Simulated assay, not measured.
Amino acid sequence: MASIMEAPVRVARSWVPTAALVWAAAYGCLRVWFATGNAPVWKLPGRDLLVPDWIAVAGCLVSAAGVIALGRRPRSRALIRLLWVLAAGWVAAAAFALLDLVAGLLPGLGIPFDLLGMLSRFTALGGAALLGATALAYQRRLDPTCLRCTGRPRPTSIPTWPAWLAVVGCLTRLAAQAAVGFGSSPYDGNLSRIIFEGGFVLAGVALPLLLVYRPGRFFPRWMLLLPGFGLGAGITAYFGVGLLQMIGNVIQGKPAYDDVGLPEAFFWVAVPAYLLWGVGLTLAAYGYQRRTRKPCKGCGL
C-alpha cells in the first residue's frame, strides 16, 4: 500500500513540469526581447510565429501559471485540459515549422529558409511537447488502474476511416491542382520538386494505409510513427491556421488568399483538403501507436 501511495508523488515531482517552467521562463524572456524591437528580420511569414510577440509573451506567462497551478491542484481536470489546449496553441503558432522542414530538406524548391525562425519555431514546439507531457503525467495520476499508463488494453484492431480520410484529402488536393494545371505550381521544376511530389503521394496515400492495414506491421514502428505524427500534426496546424486566416480575411472583406497567380476557388478546395489529410493522418498514427505499443510494465496491458 505504501508503494502505491508514493508512486503519484514521484510522478508529480518528475523533471517534466520543472522543464516546462524553465522553458516558459526562458522563452518568455526571449519573446519580450523580440517584442521590444530586437527581433531579427524574419524571412518566411514576416515573423517567426503566427501570433504577435506580446501574445507569445502572454502565452508563456499563462503556460507557466498553468504548470504551477496544476502542481498545487494535481487532481484538477480543468487545469490538465488547459495545458493540453496551450500545447495545441503553441503547435498552431509554430505551424510554419512544416515549411522549415521542407525548405531544409529540399532547398531546390525555392522556399525561403530562415535558420533563426526555424530555431524559434522549434523551441515553441519543444515547449508544446513539455506542456503536453506535463498534462499527461498528471492525467495518469487520476486513473487508479495503473500509474504508468492509462490502463487501457491494446486494441486488437483499429478503425480504417482516418486513413481513408487522409487519402481523400490528398487526392482532393491533387485534383484541385489538376484543375488549375500542374504547371502553375509556385515551386521550381527541378529534382527537388520531383522528390517533393513523390513524397507527397507517399505521405498522402501509402503512409496512411500502412498505418491501419497489416502490411504496416512489417515496418519498424518509428518508420511510420515519426512521419505519421510529425506530418499529421504539421499539416493540421499549418493548414488549420491557414483556413482560419482565410475565413478571417473574408469576414473583413479582403481576398481569402494573397495573389499568387491561382484562382481563389483553388484555395477553398486545397486548404480544407490539406486539413482533412492532416487530421486523418494524425488519427491513423494514434491508432497505430496504440495497437503496436509494448505491454505496460506496470499492469501488463
Rank of each mutant, 00 (worst) to 15 (best):
M1G: 10
I4C: 06
M5T: 10
R10Q: 14
W15M: 15
T18M: 09
L21C: 11
Y27P: 06
L30R: 14
V32H: 04
F34V: 10
F34K: 11
A35G: 08
V41H: 14
W42M: 13
G46F: 11
L49K: 06
L50P: 04
A58C: 10
A64Q: 00
G66V: 02
A69L: 14
G71I: 08
L79F: 00
L83V: 04
V85T: 14
L86D: 00
A87T: 00
A88F: 14
L98R: 10
L101V: 15
L106W: 11
P107Y: 02
R121F: 03
F122C: 06
A124F: 04
A129V: 12
L130C: 05
G132V: 01
Q139D: 12
P144W: 01
P144C: 02
C149D: 07
G151E: 00
P155Q: 09
A163F: 01
A176I: 02
Q177K: 13
A179W: 15
F182C: 10
F182V: 05
S185M: 05
D188H: 09
D188I: 11
N190S: 05
F196C: 08
G199T: 02
V201N: 07
L202Q: 12
L209I: 00
Y213I: 01
R217V: 01
R217Y: 00
F219E: 00
W222K: 13
F229V: 01
L231S: 08
G232W: 09
G232E: 07
A233I: 08
G234K: 07
I235T: 12
T236H: 10
A237I: 04
G242W: 06
G248T: 03
V250N: 07
E264S: 15
F267P: 11
A270N: 15
A273F: 05
G278S: 08
L283D: 05
R290Q: 13
R290N: 10
P295V: 11
C299G: 12
